[in-house]
Amino acid sequence: MHLEPIWQAPVQQQVYRELLDAFSYPGQVKKLNALIADHHALHALLATLLDGESRLADTTGQLKATHWSLLQAQNFAVEQAQFIVADGKQSTELHPNLGSLASPEHGATLILMVDGFYSQGHAVSLQLKGPGIATTTMLDVEGLNQQWLEQRAQWNQHFPLGVDIILASPNAIVALPRTTHIQVQTKET
């Protein structure tokens, strides 16, 4: 059986380095084109992050049976999942695990699928502040429903409890750790 490169350790190690860098510098777009070829960044992320012990909730139905067998992750309900895949365009009432005061690291990581990181169409402009950002940085996200940001603010209001978010476009990723402060910028018309 021939495995595509995203399912092999060398590519997963490179994707992991890009993901670590993304979490170190929130809002920085990490292009994965050279690593993932014609695969979606979501699949590369999941292949990198998950193993047989991981609890995953796919609210999109994007993962096919072949993906599940390669990931070897356990299919869980959102409330118990460590990783949650969701469509950034769709607003849903999720109740992810926020961790506990004794173990805040158990808060879920949401991977939101978006269209891209550019300021065209209906892009949402975000001003980001916090650890890893010198002063502020701007991020334009196409295909992100602003209700996700409102829910994120509620989930993360009792820091260190909360969720971390990874935005995944077809060929790039951006990390928004729970320590990042996000303010939506209104566009002038």
Rank of each mutant, 00 (worst) to 15 (best):
M1H: 08
H2R: 11
P5A: 11
P5D: 06
W7H: 06
Q8D: 04
Q14F: 10
E18T: 12
L20K: 13
L20V: 10
F23Y: 01
F23Q: 02
S24D: 13
Q28P: 03
A37C: 04
H39F: 07
A47D: 03
L49S: 09
G52V: 12
E53T: 10
L56P: 04
T59F: 01
Q62A: 15
Q62V: 08
A65E: 02
T66V: 15
S69Q: 09
L71V: 04
Q72L: 15
A73K: 01
Q74G: 13
A77C: 11
Q80E: 05
A81L: 02
Q82D: 09
K89F: 07
Q90E: 12
H95C: 13
L98P: 00
S100G: 05
S100Y: 00
L101I: 14
H106N: 13
H106E: 13
L110K: 01
I111W: 04
L112I: 15
Y118Q: 15
H122W: 06
A123T: 03
V124W: 00
Q127K: 15
P131C: 13
I133S: 08
T136L: 14
T137R: 13
M138A: 14
M138E: 11
M138D: 15
V141D: 01
E142F: 11
G143K: 03
L144D: 00
L144W: 04
L149I: 11
Q151M: 05
W155F: 09
P160N: 03
D164P: 00
I165P: 01
S169V: 02
N171I: 08
N171A: 14
A172W: 00
A172H: 08
L176I: 14
L176V: 05
L176S: 07
P177F: 01
R178K: 10
R178C: 10
T180G: 03
T180A: 08
I182V: 11
Q183S: 09
K187P: 06
E188R: 12
